[in-house]
Design a binder for these strands. Structure first.
Lengths: 228, 228
DNA sequence: TCATGGTAAGTAAGTCTTCACTCACCTAAA
DNA sequence: TTTAGGTGAGTGAAGACTTACTTACCATGA
């Protein structure tokens, strides 16, 4: 009996936190979501096993199913969790009211290029779109669409101001975000080496794009906007 | 025994072409590659089973393994098959020597937007990159890198001509192709509805981008390039 | 200050299914 | 009669999900 307890202690030490304490349901769910997110991002939904997820968290596979009745449920929980963008919009607000084009575009571009940190996010988004999960639409709609619409709205007001040429605002917004996202894609997904810093890249893109958008007063020399 | 033969007759009618003839190894391989390509594109490598592939072609699963010893071999065969871009470059050549910027950019953009036809291609490329197949690098290098390098080279000569502003050519090339590819991505992968025709979109993108790139002579009114 | 019992956290060891891949065999045609 | 296209019926491994069970924690009343 006493030796039984001893071996027990050693075995059951797995499903505990660093202090050997049992973990609350909420915390456990959170850590499962986090682990699953990075695994799904790395290997896709079909490429990841529930066993792996359990192992990453250091618990038994059975526990995963206690909190999430199916693998898909877990996936859904991840997507639901990731839907929070609004921070950005507040930050940009000031630049928007000041009509500081350069700053608005730079901030939007930089937000998405935030290096490393959320590279899992892009992968997750792509995977869910490719694998065609029902949730990916919601995911995209709630998280990404915001950017396009926001930027498009800004471009529209600038056109009304007479500052930008008259282009389809949504198309222009997509074009700009496309440049930036594509750059991330090349780097983070395809592993293309980049020889410039993120800042330089963003600066170049913003500069190029605004140069194409801004309605120049007659006689202004475009080369005054020469890069670097 | 006799009834055994009867059922046999009916079952073996499967692995034949429309004339009831047996199919040559080459043709069979080709049809397997085609079927596998569209399945992998739709559901990813891990999401597709060899049984499905066999069924799509109308043969037994065993036959798949007769031609392709492993599932990965089949995958490799698809990627190897898809590596052929050079057609485009010949077509663009004329526009390049004429320094017809508008046409060069439009052709490159249009090639990739070629509607429908090769939507499987984009998916396949993304899937293989995400799932991290060793082959995806080769795939990307042989098929896609060409575009970036080609366009970058063109931009470089135009800068030397004094026609374009001095920008990092590769970055600019990526930016342009990024706009276009991203547009396809939104449409074909994320299912975002597009309210413009492909032509209009490409025209807008080319126009926007060139406006940002072209070094305008003093006094030229940019609004003369107004869209639509 | 304890037992003590209800409950929530946790597990080992399955079950059932599917999947990549094999094997022994068949048969049309050259 | 050989050979190349073709098959049904497996096999072992792995994966999603269950089941029956074991703790640890904590509130409650004696």
């Amino acid at each position: 009996m006493s030796e039984d307890l001893l071996t027990m202690k050693k075995q059951t030490a797995e499903g505990r936190d660093e202090n050997g304490q049992r973990v609350s349901a909420g915390d456990r769910q959170a850590s499962l979501i986090a682990a699953a997110a990075s695994l799904f991002a790395a290997k896709g939904f079909n490429g990841t096993t529930t066993k792996e997820i359990a192992k990453a968290v250091g618990v038994s596979e059975a526990l995963v199913f206690k909190y999430f009745p199916t693998k898909r449920t877990l996936y859904a929980a991840i997507l639901a969790e990731k839907v929070t963008v609004n921070e950005l919009l507040d930050v940009v607000e000031a630049a928007v009211t000041k009509r500081d084009d350069h700053r608005v575009f730079t901030m939007i571009a930089s937000y998405r290029i935030r290096p490393g940190a959320d590279s899992t996010f892009l992968r997750l988004l792509l995977f869910s779109a490719l694998e065609g999960h029902e949730l990916s639409e919601l995911f995209f709609g709630k998280h990404h669409k915001v950017f396009y619409d926001y930027l498009a709205a800004y471009i529209r007001t600038r056109i009304d101001d007479g500052a930008f040429r008259s282009v389809d605002p949504l198309l222009a917004a997509r074009a700009f975000i496309g440049m930036v996202v594509h750059h991330r894609l090349l780097h983070e997904i395809f592993g293309v080496p980049m020889h410039q810093s993120h800042e330089t890249t963003v600066a170049t893109y913003v500069d190029l794009f605004l140069a194409g958008l801004i309605r120049m007063p007659i006689g202004r020399k475009s080369s005054s906007r020469r890069l670097r």
